[in-house]
Design a protein around this nucleic acid. Structure first.
Length: 268
DNA sequence: TGCCAGGCCGAAA
DNA sequence: TTTCGGCATGGC
């Protein structure tokens, strides 16, 4: 049963390609079959495959865990229908249906977005992969070798110059300092969850190397605080700056991302 | 070969 | 409070 192919989602509620490739996560890789991706989340390896409106998964992990990761309990159609009627949203939903905001692990998300500063996605991915191969644990699944994301404890005890050898650049001290804060419970993800978004953001901004952009990406992707960017704000700001349309947005994460990128890009 | 990227820190004004 | 220079480095 462990590695059998199981049904994860039906009815087009999840599109794995857009969800895993829209830039919200960095650790999924295209498998050798069409519309299949392999990755590791919180120590669990998996291969997810799109087959029309259905998504199948091979994993040793529990199905419920993956349903949580892909946020399948959240009714996106209901949310979408509650959006104010607007061509921006309509076009986004039509363009990338089934794109979902992943419920990523907080530490991995925070660390990844520290690395993302003034960086590009291919390099973010390769840097993270190198860190995982060096400081994570090896997992063999379906004949493939995977690596877990390094724990905050491991990175907290690493000299910054050691991290720099793996391409993190000047962000080395950001990573080790924040890792230490997490390992020593100076910052506690469970406590952040119960705070309001504004309160949680304030706590995050105390951390060395965490600015508004990293904090807001973390709130959205790492803590699932969808109000980090209220949708009417995303729309208004994105339209104000760039009009609507284009290839850089999707149903939900895409709209959020478009707003985040353009807001901060314009603000710098 | 040179430009630039999904920012942030810290000094100076 | 705001502005601005500096920062590492690989992908394109």
């Amino acid at each position: 049963m462990a590695n059998s192919r199981r049904l994860l989602a039906t009815g087009g509620t999840l599109t794995v390609a857009s969800s895993l490739q829209c830039g919200q996560c960095f650790r999924w890789f295209a498998a050798d079959t069409v519309d299949s991706f392999c990755g590791v989340v919180e120590g669990r390896a998996a291969v997810v495959s799109q087959d029309g409106d259905n998504v199948y998964i091979q994993t040793e992990g529990e199905l419920d865990f993956w349903r949580g990761y892909f946020d399948l309990e959240t009714d996106y159609r209901k949310i979408t229908n509650e959006f104010p009627h607007h061509p921006f949203i309509n076009e986004a939903v039509a363009k990338w249906p089934g794109l979902r905001v992943l419920r990523q692990h907080p530490w991995e998300t925070l660390c990844s977005y520290l690395i993302s500063q003034r960086n590009n996605i291919p390099r973010i991915r390769s840097t993270i992969q190198r860190l995982c191969e060096k400081f994570g644990d090896e997992i063999v699944f379906c004949g493939q070798t995977y690596y877990t994301f390094p724990t905050p404890e491991v990175l907290a005890n690493m000299p910054p110059e050691e991290l720099r050898r793996f391409g993190v650049g000047y962000r080395d001290k950001y990573i080790t300092t924040v890792a230490k804060s997490v390992a020593e419970h100076d910052i506690d993800f469970d406590q952040l969850r119960v705070l309001t978004t504004d309160e949680a953001r304030k706590e995050l901004l105390r951390l060395y190397g965490v600015g508004k952009k990293v904090a807001d990406c973390f709130l959205l992707y790492g803590l699932g605080k969808l109000d980090a960017f209220p949708v009417d704000t995303w729309i208004a700001k994105a339209i104000e700056d760039h009009g609507f349309g284009g290839d850089d947005f999707g149903e939900y994460a895409g709209v959020a991302q478009l707003y985040i990128f353009q807001h901060y890009r314009n603000g710098k």
